[in-house]
Simulated scan of single mutants.
Amino acid sequence: MPTRPGAAFDAFLDTTAPRAAERRDWTPEDGALPALYLSHGAPPLFDEAEWMDRLFAWAQGLPRPKGVLIVSAHWEAAPLMISSPNPGTPLVYDFGGFPQRYFEMQYATPDASAMASRVAAAMPDAEPLHQHASRGLDHGAWVPLKVMYPYGDVPVLQLSIPTHDPDRLIDLGRRLRPLREEGYLVVGSGFMTHGLPFVDFHHPDRIPGWSEDFDLWASEALARGDIDSLARYRSQAPGMPYAHPTVDHYVPLFVTYGAASDQEQPAQTVIDGYWFGLSKRSFQLA
């Protein structure tokens, strides 16, 4: 157990985060940024040094984007909404039962008004984008981004999940695809398995069969570029419904796929393994 909550994050800030200064800004010569799916985790992942190192290295291998547009499992709202673009928008502490430190963390990001206008322009007139005047970033966004961009030097906006329907989410991602070519990073943030009611928190190294089976099925489908199988997860995926008693942490990957240039390409898994038996599989698509 850590000596204090977030001790690994403190060490990360001291020893690893300064390397973010080595990043160069995205330029058109870089071409489109990849589309990402992150298994984001709860605030205690700030005590998982390996997860932070791998997530930071992922961001370190990319140019610094003009902005990040992230779809988090923790904001389900229709019609489609976007978070406040104001600089330093307050965070949403949408969790409970954790040490007080995690309720005091901050992540002040720059003004994102230009990105907000660009995202709004990508939406059809029949389905306008609604701006939530006060909504900040929830932990599905700020927890991973505090590791990827630890100095809060990249504008960030959060997009709501308006539906669980894979086809509609793929279509939403497709509208966002041009943003990748303009230097914006499009991210779906969830968790590859998220059966919290069935996790044995007294044995964090124990991997439930339902989690392992679902992850293996998903990894094989991702490696084949088999979006059709991924979309039929309710009937095809082993481990259901234990792996996803609710599907909010799975469906952001369809926005990622929609934003990809080729929906049938094999996904590149960047982070794998388990945390309290939950699959951390995270991947990117060109």
Results as ranks from 00 to 15, higher is better:
31 G>V: 04
158 Q>I: 01
242 Y>K: 11
169 L>K: 12
115 M>A: 01
277 G>P: 04
94 D>I: 06
56 F>R: 03
226 D>P: 06
218 A>F: 07
179 L>H: 04
258 G>T: 03
196 L>T: 14
36 L>Y: 14
242 Y>H: 14
285 L>S: 09
21 A>T: 11
96 G>N: 09
24 R>E: 11
10 D>Q: 14
165 D>W: 13
103 F>V: 01
108 A>P: 00
194 H>C: 05
252 P>D: 05
85 P>W: 04
135 R>Q: 11
20 A>H: 14
20 A>Q: 14
56 F>N: 05
112 A>H: 10
228 D>I: 02
239 G>V: 11
220 E>V: 04
231 A>P: 02
238 P>Y: 10
76 E>Y: 04
88 G>Q: 02
103 F>H: 15
130 H>M: 08
110 P>G: 08
216 L>P: 00
12 F>Y: 15
175 R>F: 05
83 S>I: 02
13 L>K: 10
262 D>L: 02
155 P>W: 11
245 P>F: 01
60 Q>I: 00
33 L>N: 06
70 I>Q: 03
114 A>D: 14
48 E>M: 00
16 T>D: 13
4 R>Q: 14
145 L>D: 10
231 A>G: 09
35 A>Y: 07
182 E>F: 08
254 F>S: 05
255 V>A: 02
207 I>P: 03
224 R>I: 09
156 V>E: 10
217 W>Y: 09
1 M>D: 15
132 H>F: 09
84 S>T: 12
105 M>V: 05
15 T>H: 13
73 A>G: 12
53 D>T: 11
51 W>T: 05
195 G>A: 10
280 K>V: 08
110 P>I: 13
101 R>Q: 07
54 R>S: 09
19 R>E: 04
180 R>N: 06
61 G>L: 07
66 K>C: 10
152 G>R: 10
231 A>D: 08
222 L>D: 08
35 A>V: 11
215 D>A: 15
151 Y>N: 13
155 P>M: 09
19 R>N: 08
264 E>A: 12
271 I>Y: 03
33 L>V: 12
225 G>E: 10
175 R>E: 07
19 R>F: 03
278 L>R: 07
10 D>Y: 05
129 L>G: 02
189 S>F: 04
194 H>W: 12
270 V>Y: 04
57 A>N: 06
12 F>P: 02
223 A>I: 00
106 Q>R: 15
5 P>M: 11
113 S>W: 02
77 A>M: 12
160 S>L: 06
